[in-house]
Design a protein around this nucleic acid. Sequence first.
DNA 1: CTGTTAGCGCCTTCAG
DNA 2: CTGAAGGCGCTAACAG
Lengths: 335, 335
Amino acid sequence: MAHATIRDVARAANVSIATVSRALNGHGNVRANLRERVQSVAAALGYVPHTGARSLSLAQTNAIGVMLPDLHGEFYSEALRGMDGEASARGLQLLLSNMHGDRRGTETLQFMRGRVDALILMAPDIDPERLLTHLPTSLPTVLISCPDVAADHPQFRIDNAAGADAMVEHLIASGRRRIVHLSGPRGNRDAEERIAGYREAMARHGLSPRILTGNFEEETGTAAALQLIADAERADALFAANDMMAIGAMVAFQRAGLAVPDDIAVAGFDDIPLARFVTPALSTMRVGIAEIGAEAVSRIAAILAGETDTDVRRIVPQIIARASTLAKTEKGRQL
Amino acid sequence: MAHATIRDVARAANVSIATVSRALNGHGNVRANLRERVQSVAAALGYVPHTGARSLSLAQTNAIGVMLPDLHGEFYSEALRGMDGEASARGLQLLLSNMHGDRRGTETLQFMRGRVDALILMAPDIDPERLLTHLPTSLPTVLISCPDVAADHPQFRIDNAAGADAMVEHLIASGRRRIVHLSGPRGNRDAEERIAGYREAMARHGLSPRILTGNFEEETGTAAALQLIADAERADALFAANDMMAIGAMVAFQRAGLAVPDDIAVAGFDDIPLARFVTPALSTMRVGIAEIGAEAVSRIAAILAGETDTDVRRIVPQIIARASTLAKTEKGRQL
DNA sequence: CTGTTAGCGCCTTCAG
DNA sequence: CTGAAGGCGCTAACAG
């Protein structure tokens, strides 16, 4: 018993399919009693319009495709949550498609054609050439933290260098000197920029940089901490390129008997919700990823409404100083 | 410059659209050189098949609709993550649609018709009648934590009562007697069942139940804690119906100078990732929501492949005893 | 106001 | 092996 189609309704109501379409879509130009008849027949038959067919006909899907690197960890989840809130407020649906760490994953972008009206792509570690190749020409696409290859696309760019710089300044201001950076994976745009900001701030203060390479996952934070603990001349601050690594490291430090922030300060980046809850609360750079997600959807909506938008919106991360980087002299006024 | 269609390719390659379709879809019955010509022409034109049209024609979308109550907090995010992993491993896309706390949100289910091959619905607080009314008849639908109205649907049911019961037993075993339950919102299936389990276990031990009503959000945990703190005869354990409320309460207790678990034990439900990271680590009932999400997708895939599945799969939550409920006598062997 | 007629872009019999 | 033709379900002119 396949679903009833518009034709079934038309037949049962003794009208043409055009009338059914008009009646059901509230097109005004249908006599009231006819409209009612159609509606009740449709209800009786359990008719539900076939959204796919309608999309094909209208050349409009009311869906927007979302391509994320991953859904692991709170960062991307938050981004998605932000998009979702805005999208459903506007009656748009989200079609998900993650790359799962596959830099080549952009192939899937193509498969979105015909299913969505626009795209949101967040891909800090994508291969720039492939991005350029696979970026659909016929679909408005908002880029978040993507390589610089594509001009004229509405974009969000996180000012990672400034953020990292600010965090280093904060650490120095709180009395640290031997500040180690635990970076994200090489080739990841956000990671590289955070490294650059770290280096610059360190250089400005005549401090020698030291960088460990992680992959944004908790485990590499743990590993980095273990490595630092073994050091003869221990660092007095670890600045991780994201919160999950920072938290992994912090837990490892504590488990090894080191006090945070007294023995070593720990800082992250992103300000995921979790950062507030660990002990001590994690100092971090707030990016506001949920807000970015929401705004990405708003921009899409505006573009679909006819506006043109090729802006590159710069997001400047804000420092959130919590207990994990408290200066020793500040002890006691901890929350 | 709208996108090239199959017709454009056909014309440019001097063949019929049927041949293009066959060539591009690897249908074998096309001469090799013709196939190559078609492929190169398609590439040259930047042709990408229109997935929407193809879906209409094939009556198959390779997408599955996901309806969640919300995306706030780690619980649903984790569910989605589980689904996403399994879906993309199978080449399926996820079409998202949240209810955002609107019990009537099931209307949207209808809008999924024609865009997805199947549905996953998680709706512990949906209005049962509406669920029944709006449940598409023509779409395989997996239900997670939904009201009991719909038989013959593949389902997942979390054994909340058993879980709550086990947690109360654990709390009693660790020396608590004045155990207060902070419930989820009334009308929510999971919440009600957890209440029932709590009541039963308390009754079995001759303890008098006390229930505060929350809404699964952190803030109501905070509020509940404040209320308990003000009490003359304070509780010695708070068992919250989910982890976020438990954490909200725990933070509030600590901020008020109470020690957890020494002054009061705190337990949650769900075992969201965050539970491991708070201090003390939160005892909770593990539901494995990501796994449920993944399995839901697997079941969908099997159904789409022709299998029939009307099972109700029972998930029995496992107790995860962490430091937040340590018995006083256990002190010292805390991790 | 209502019905008829073309498509939307693609796939798939059915003939050749 | 290839082309012509019909149809997926719906909407939108275009006539009446």
